[in-house]
Design a protein around this nucleic acid. Sequence first.
DNA 1: CAATAATGTGTTTAATTTACACATTAAACG
DNA 2: CGTTTAATGTGTAAATTAAACACATTATTG
Lengths: 246, 246
Amino acid sequence: MITEEKMATGKQSKTLQVIQSEVENTNRIALSVDCIIFGFDDAKLKVLLIRSDLKKYAGKWSLLGDLVFPNEDLDAAAYRILKQRTGLSDVYLEQVSTFGTVSRHPAGRVVTVAYCSLINVQHHKLNILDNELHWHDIKSVNDLAFDHQLIFDTCLKQLQKRVQEHPLGFNLLPKKFSLRDLQNLYEAILDIKMDRRNFRKKFFSMDFLVDLNEMEQNVPHRPGKLYKFNYEKYEKKKKKWIGIDF
Amino acid sequence: MITEEKMATGKQSKTLQVIQSEVENTNRIALSVDCIIFGFDDAKLKVLLIRSDLKKYAGKWSLLGDLVFPNEDLDAAAYRILKQRTGLSDVYLEQVSTFGTVSRHPAGRVVTVAYCSLINVQHHKLNILDNELHWHDIKSVNDLAFDHQLIFDTCLKQLQKRVQEHPLGFNLLPKKFSLRDLQNLYEAILDIKMDRRNFRKKFFSMDFLVDLNEMEQNVPHRPGKLYKFNYEKYEKKKKKWIGIDF
DNA sequence: CAATAATGTGTTTAATTTACACATTAAACG
DNA sequence: CGTTTAATGTGTAAATTAAACACATTATTG
């Protein structure tokens, strides 16, 4: 321990010139963004994948990604890549984590920043004529190309956590939805079953749902009421939780 | 909307050669790690800062950081930089977020990955003879160099959140601590006051504290019992919370 | 028009969190 | 040496929240 401590210098004594030299020459690395695009359809949580075009990963699916340009903000790159792939720009997008093992990409050193996006499959019908781009039920996602399985697993876990803390899920639903839709969404994301009556009570007590006085159409059972989410009310009332929950 | 959708291609049609060319030539960016090193001393949460050596930020404090080598795993770089600055390697370290605006660093394009580390100031006395490296009470941290204020704020918020979900705080305490120490820690991190009796009850009910049958020494009041944390018990019992908490 | 399978609305019970009161112990001080 | 002081240590009652559960209502199906 003592020896280790003696090794510590703390000091950052590089001049701007030295740093500039390092930044411009020897120490540069390719940086990419990978988008984990979640959707919700047919009461199932889906993720958008593309077939890998590298021989090494022939037949495998991968996330949608691309390199970040040197003159481009990281977040801007995420939006650009998302738009290139889906045509959409007005969607929820959030940085999740950065993956940087040396040998994660066969083309050389590429560090990648994962961004999670939630899109509404109903509103945002993609023109997926191309068979190489496809929505996958998250339950059947395995053995992705590169380290994309790790990235996907990380993002799914983060989504599961975040959706319990913030009303993210509404980004995956149409503007008008029934309580059954909402519960199906939570059950699909969290992979659990919930009590219908307590679920309903919970959301009503939060008072973020607006009754639209409309009913479901063309359902093979008694139609449920339709609601929309009140974002303004949420912004005002959102909870800053304090407590210890190990 | 339709026009946007028509722009979307989805396809990633680059060959390995094209990607390799991009990775090796035009699209490389300097990547750095910045360490946010938290400590707990004198009932206050502290962060380790170094004085910036760039003229642009003369007199300002900054986080400890350095460039990632092209042949170095990202996590390994974080551990290396932490060790260079503090001499320590057996500490809690966690990636927090990546910051990548184009003009965040005066030496050129540098994307930085923030890592948060929690160290025990008692066990890990750094040889901070150098006046340029200093522990700062988090309440007095403002106007850091670069975008380090943003990075620091982000890490502090994440710590506040994480410490309520997992027993991270124990990394900041000595192996033996009193319940008062533990409560001071939580109050310092969360910047709140808690009821002493309910705090005690909460931690005892979790059953992760081991009574060492020792008492505090040299305190100017009735000595409290000393405890240690039982990590094994935590691993077995840790809660997978399911619920909706907006 | 009866059977079915949903929606919609409770109540009751258990668990958890919050608020609060009092006895105990060691140090400090005259 | 005894009193004051300022902590620690233990508990109890109320309030809130979460969990378990029952039944009426409505539209569709056959």
